[in-house]
């Protein structure tokens, strides 16, 4: 039996395999390890976990990955997109090699986080949620990393910079000259 969706199915997996064979294999292996069945509700319970893993592997959630997850978990693309757009952790846009996140929690806010964000914006020439054209830096803001004693705080990848001043911004960026 053949139908549109089966045709598409081949395409999503094939295309991904062509683009990112290693990553795709890793994701498929992960999905295969899940206790999936025909019970859509039970499959849905694994959705967020799957998206987390997919984003860790691919760095973001491109349309092909969403399609693949949709087929394997038997959940519609629209619903998956609904989940991705709901949670701020998930993104369907490629992000830079280094993720800069300026904490804008209350403690950082009262200690001047807005000025830090402005400084990054002007130094990088991008807005929050964007990636530099050379794909090097992504600039984001997040709500509280819980290091309020070091406010204002900036996280670059997994490294935390505390008590950041606008003057420190260029020094921070210089740490990532690759």
């Amino acid at each position: 039996m053949s139908c549109d969706c089966c045709g598409k199915k081949e395409k999503a997996l094939e295309k991904l395999m062509k683009l990112e064979p290693k990553k795709t294999t890793e994701l498929v292996a992960f999905i295969d390890s899940l206790p999936l069945g025909n019970d859509i509700d039970a499959n849905r319970g694994c959705l967020i976990e799957t998206l987390h893993r997919a984003q860790t592997i691919f760095g973001y959630l491109p349309a092909e990955v969403q399609q693949l997850v949709s087929e394997r978990l038997k959940i519609t693309r629209s619903e998956i997109y609904g989940v991705i757009s709901f949670y701020s952790y998930f993104t369907d846009k490629p992000i830079g090699r280094h993720k800069i996140n300026v904490c804008c929690g209350t403690a950082c806010f009262v200690k001047g986080a807005t000025r830090i964000v402005d400084e990054f914006k002007s130094k990088l020439g991008i807005k929050e949620g964007e990636t530099t054209p050379d794909k090097k830096f992504f600039l984001g803001v997040l709500r509280c990393v819980g290091a309020c004693s070091l406010a204002p705080v900036v996280m670059v990848d997994d490294h935390v910079y505390g008590k950041v001043t606008p003057e420190m911004v260029s020094t921070i960026l210089a740490d990532y000259q690759d």
Binding site: F86, Y87, Y89
Partner: peptide, 25 residues
């Protein structure tokens, strides 16, 4: 363990439950 994905409203118990079920919180 179930992971949140960055939604403040998921601190509300019914929203949290939806999130555990894999839905929008």
């Amino acid at each position: 363990l179930k992971y949140g994905a960055g939604a403040f409203v998921c601190g509300e118990e019914t929203a949290l439950i939806h999130s555990v079920e894999g839905r929008r919180g």
